[in-house]
Design a protein around this nucleic acid. Structure first.
Lengths: 142, 142
DNA sequence: ATTTTTGCAAACCTTTTGCATGGAA
DNA sequence: TTCCATGCAAAAGGTTTGCAAAAAT
């Protein structure tokens, strides 16, 4: 969950132009609070008559991913989805029922990386953690 | 890294038939010590004149994944790859230079899952950790 | 004016499916 | 002999690309 302006600022700060399609897309993304696929954004943009081209959506997602305001997830089903995120958080729990996602701090994971270095001898430089489960709203006893 | 027979046993134990193509594929997989994609197995099977069909490779990988002797990875590049693994280990460090992979015990990760439950209220049921780095052989100072 | 960005459509790549044939049990 | 597994080729997804037109700086 991120404001439209944060997405636009990310484009601006990195020297990308603030075009109509990018503004439109930023709004579509900001209006979602769970994860989304490129195809979903495309469909939504069609519904709202924003007329975004497929290529534009993919290119923008790519850019936003590089800028760190969006992150690509690989769901257990193999689908590629995206979530918006603060540049400092690096992981998410995603609800397997409603798709909502919540950031997790990287602390524990960093420790883990250190352990891995110690036990395997690898020089770790990237990691990706994806946690799936039921969010409080979707839990049976809530 | 896994023996051909382990792969075959997995098929057998689960009630799948031990067919020629499955034997052939098991050997191709066993001969690889790093991760591999479906396409690579296909290419290798072509080179060895094993004549495996594309569908067969995908179906077999799917089955082996369900049986837990193979695991699907999503590399940072977005590629889908597979590694063989013992059914009890659930994570890997993979070398970004040579592709070799080493299993990591799940211990620390399980703790992490508990922390996540506590801090977010999610009921965690699956997680996926992928760690990337340089293996000892590919490290600059080795 | 210059350079980036867009949309379109086609190309691409990977994975899946339908179905008749072949092979295991 | 029965049912599972295979191969083929086509279909289906999802993502990328080339290029001329449009928009931002």
């Amino acid at each position: 969950m991120v404001a439209t302006s944060e997405l636009l600022d990310a484009f601006g700060a990195a020297g990308y132009r603030l075009t109509g399609p990018r503004r439109a897309l930023a709004e579509v993304i900001a209006s979602r609070e769970d994860h989304f696929t490129a195809e979903e954004l495309l469909a939504e943009s069609g519904r709202r008559r924003l007329g975004l081209g497929r290529a534009t959506v993919f290119r923008a997602l790519d850019t936003l991913t590089e800028l760190g305001v969006v992150e690509r997830l690989d769901l257990p089903t193999g689908e590629h989805a995206f979530v918006t995120c603060e540049p400092t958080h690096h992981h998410h729990v995603v609800c397997s029922s409603c798709g909502r996602s919540t950031p997790i701090s990287d602390d524990g994971v960093a420790d883990l990386a250190a352990k891995v270095e110690a036990s395997t001898g690898y020089r770790v430089d990237t990691h990706r953690l994806e946690v799936f489960g039921l969010c409080p709203q979707c839990s049976p006893e809530s």
